[in-house]
Each structure stands twice: as C-alpha cells, then as structure tokens.
C-alpha cells in the first residue's frame, strides 16, 4: 500500500463516553479532530443496565467518596445521568471551540459495546476511560505509541500517530516479534515521508494486555491502534493513556 493511499481523509472521530471524568481523552480527541480537520462526534451512553438495576427493590449505590450505601432510584439515576451528559456536552463544546472543530453531540441509551459496534461509519473511535483522570502527559516529553501489524488499518493508525506527534515528539512503534523484521521497513518508509522520528519496540505480540503494559511502561501520551473498535476498545479501557482505534 502506498503512503498516498494510507493518507485518506479522516472525516469523523467518534468519542464515546459514559462519564465526564476522562477530560484528557476529550482534549486529545479535539486535538486530533483539529489536526485532520474532521468532525468530532461525541456520544454519551446512558447505561441501560444501570437503569434496570435501579428498578430492583434492593438496589443500593455505595458512594465513592463516603462509602455509605443509599437507595438507587430510577428517577434520581436519570437525573444524575442527564447532569453527567450535560457536563460532557459542555466540555466537548469548550474543547471543540478552542480547537475550532465541527462537533456533534448525542445521548444514547444502551451499552457502550453497542455504540462501538455501530461506529463503522467513523474513521477513528476513542473511548472514555473509567476512574480518576491520570496525570496529563505534556507534549514533547512523552511518546505517541502506535501498534503496527502491517494491516491497512495499522497503516492508517501509524499515519494518525504521525499526525499527533509533533516534530520533537517521538513515535514509539510497537511491532509483533514474529513479523518485526519485515514490518519495520514499511513503518520507517511511512514515517520518513511524514518527517517524523520513530523508535521501535518489539513485543511478543500485539494483544491488548501487551499494549496496556507497553503504554504503562513508556508513559505514553496516546496509544493508536488499527482495527475494530468494538473488539479492541473494551479490552483497552484500563489503559494508562487515551486510546484511539483507527478503522
């Protein structure tokens, strides 16, 4: 595949979130949208499982701050979810305006997996991570990680990584041990055309566990992977850095 082919226009970036806690991913998604001049589509997913749970007579919520239990009621839960959705919308708007990108926002009720499965029309999918936000990694000091298995999607992922990495930034290319020898020249050729520096790290394989471990060890700013978001993202949700899956 030629370099020209891989650089097809990225039009849509989907960001799926179920809370407003992952501001880092939100910020990176907006940056990416600005760089590729694409549209940022924000989707807030209201979990249908949670709403069903709230209808159970013994449903209790244990507060994360006080560790005290309280009755989980549907009406209250819906209010809380609406508030979260509004918070996400505002954040998205702020970032989008700041980066001058087009944006949309919608609320879906169901499961994140279903939303991801229905994302085939988008070029890049990112998923909000649960839990507290980790430290922001400043640009120029931490690398962008790109998993490269030679697939078409992997080429696009590498291209996106090159978009996100500044000139001073390094790109750390993760290669599977079995194909490292042959994949490396292809990756190098692509990055040379983009005038980006690259380092290579050979992993036993490119399984989600290996990718999570590499991301943690190298304090990456962003992990870019090519493939099916519905399959990959749920497994990469515990990543120490934001993850972008390029289709």
């Amino acid at each position: 595949m030629s370099t020209e082919d891989t650089r097809r226009a990225v039009r849509h970036i989907l960001l799926a979130l179920d809370s407003a806690q992952d501001a880092t991913t939100l910020e990176l998604a907006a940056q990416l949208a600005a760089l590729v001049q694409g549209t940022l589509q924000g989707v807030f997913v209201e979990s249908s499982d949670l709403l069903r749970l709230a209808q159970l007579p013994f449903a209790r919520e244990i507060s994360i701050t006080s560790a005290t239990p309280r009755r989980l009621e549907t009406a209250q839960l819906e209010r809380d979810l609406r508030a979260q959705a509004e918070q996400v919308r505002r954040l998205l708007e702020n970032h989008a305006v700041r980066h001058s990108v087009q944006w949309t926002f919608r609320i879906e009720r169901g499961a994140l997996t279903a939303t991801l499965a229905a994302s085939s029309a988008t070029d890049i999918v990112m998923l909000g991570r649960p839990g507290d936000s980790p430290r922001r990694q400043p640009a120029g000091t931490t690398p962008v990680l790109a998993a490269f298995d030679g697939s078409e999607a992997a080429h696009r992922a590498l291209d996106t990584a090159a978009d996100m990495a500044d000139e001073g930034d390094g790109i750390l290319i993760l290669l599977p041990a079995a194909q490292a020898q042959e994949l490396r020249p292809a990756a190098a050729a692509l990055l040379a055309a983009r005038k980006r520096r690259a380092h290579y790290l050979v992993l036993p394989d490119l399984s989600p566990a290996q990718l999570l471990d590499a991301g943690r060890r190298h304090h990456c700013r962003l992990l870019v992977v090519g493939g099916n978001p519905a399959a990959l993202l749920p497994q990469l949700q515990q990543s120490s850095c934001p993850v972008a899956v390029v289709q």
């Binding site: 179920d18 809370s19 979990s47 499982d49 949670l50 069903r52 749970l53 159970l56 449903a59 209790r60 919520e61 244990i62 507060s63 994360i64 701050t65 989980l72 839960l77 809380d80 979810l81 508030a83 979260q84 649960p130």
Partner: peptide
C-alpha cells in the same frame, strides 16, 4: 457497576 457517584451490584 459504576454509577454516576459510586458503585452498585446487580
């Protein structure tokens, strides 16, 4: 499950 302000079991 993670709820907007804590955790719950179902």
């Amino acid at each position: 499950f993670r709820t907007p302000s804590g955790f719950a079991f179902a």
